[in-house]
């Protein structure tokens, strides 16, 4: 009997140690529905209970202005959550550095990732109550994933037209960027590795 009393807590500890909290979707509604290109010019968005007019997307130019890079070296995007800054390197050369907004209402995952798809525009929605948001035409989206954070979780880098508070957490887990920065990164980040860290 005494042996069982010791065994039960030990098993519980073992379960808790090995228990991995499932990664929830970055955008709790849209990431379940679809993660495809969507251009909805004229649609109105909602964020922080305000109506938001999204930017118009030119469907002819959805592929973006992707120009081949002349600089040699592996491309790597680093995001430091502590100072809310993104650094993009090609080899040893810093291609760009800018302030971002990471997760406030949802946690941004840390680790090494790969970009599994790039979309010129899509709709993102989630939250509930006063936190509900529904944003069409989110521009320059790059979804990233790894073994622990599946593609279906919908974490991405993307342009942001509904707030301007970069340098401070403001997202539901994604990496929010100024539209001009997101475009620059989107057009450059072919086969780029991603590392997100917090220190």
């Amino acid at each position: 009997m005494k042996r069982y009393f010791l065994l039960i807590p030990a098993l519980l500890v073992l379960v808790l140690v090995n228990f991995k909290q499932p990664i929830s979707c970055a955008n709790s509604i849209s990431c379940i529905k679809n993660l495809n290109t969507e251009i909805e010019n004229g649609a109105v968005g909602v964020f922080n209970s305000q109506k938001i007019v999204p930017p118009e997307i030119n469907p002819v130019a959805v592929l973006g202005d992707i120009s081949p890079s002349a600089t040699p070296g592996e491309k790597h995007i680093y995001v430091n959550l502590a100072n809310q800054t993104l650094y993009a390197f090609q080899g040893k050369d810093l291609y760009m550095q800018t302030l971002i907004s990471s997760g406030k209402w949802g946690r941004t995952p840390t680790g090494d990732f790969t970009i599994w798809t790039k979309l010129r525009s899509t709709r993102m929605s989630g939250g509930r109550g006063s936190d509900y948001y529904n944003l069409p035409n989110v521009p320059f989206v790059m979804f990233f994933s790894n073994a622990d954070v599946p593609a279906t979780a919908g974490f991405s880098f993307h342009g942001t037209y509904w707030h301007n508070n970069f340098g401070y957490p403001m997202s539901h887990g994604c990496i929010n960027m100024r539209i001009t920065d997101a475009e620059k990164l989107y057009n450059w980040a072919e086969n780029a590795a991603v590392t997100i860290y917090d220190n």
């Binding site: 964020f47 509904w162 707030h163 508070n165 340098g167 401070y168």
Partner: peptide
Amino acid sequence: ITGWAAPTLLI
């Protein structure tokens, strides 16, 4: 004041 939470909301 850090920025804008929405088009008319300052933080």
